[in-house]
Amino acid sequence: MYTYNAALVVVGIALSGSGVGLAEESIGYGVGRPVTVAEVQAWDIDITPTGAGLPPGRGTVIQGATVYAAKCASCHGPTGIEGPQNRLVGGHGSLDSEHPVKTIGSFWPYATTLYDYIRRAMPWNAPQSLTPDEVYAVVAWLLHQNGIVPADAVMDAGTLPAVRMPNREGFVADPRPDVGSHE
């Protein structure tokens, strides 16, 4: 390692002397190894609002009801309202009230986030265990429970990014410092 760093320094001095800085982009440390496509695919689980990353598969509201009852209802309640864990359904129009209720329907700005989060983190005791069809289905059911898609909706890589969430425009940039400045 010492020899390696010493060599880098020598290169850097040589480049500096010729007017070229020690740019890490052009020289680097030679650390790390190239990645295979399979390695990236195995971990690349994020879904963006454009739908990038959504896998093949599909799910209906009815299929989602079955998945939800089997794998979600014990924590979130039979209809997504009862809990005891996070309430998923309802709360529409409550955000500016004395008792705001933040749910998927009232608060989440992107439908694609549902796929991303459920796939990566749910169910709590077995994260990343659902098949793509199961995730699409339970997303369809949750959107339908929140009155966002009809009972015959089918969610897939094409339809999910097109879902417009009610609170899509509900977020603003950080304006701080908003208080406490230069008192």
Binding site: L95, F107, F171
Partner: peptide, 15 residues
């Protein structure tokens, strides 16, 4: 989005 955003009285959340 759903977490670590700050809900203001007007119903908008700082992100």
């Amino acid at each position: 989005t759903a977490r670590y955003t700050d809900l203001m009285p007007d119903g908008k959340a700082r992100q």
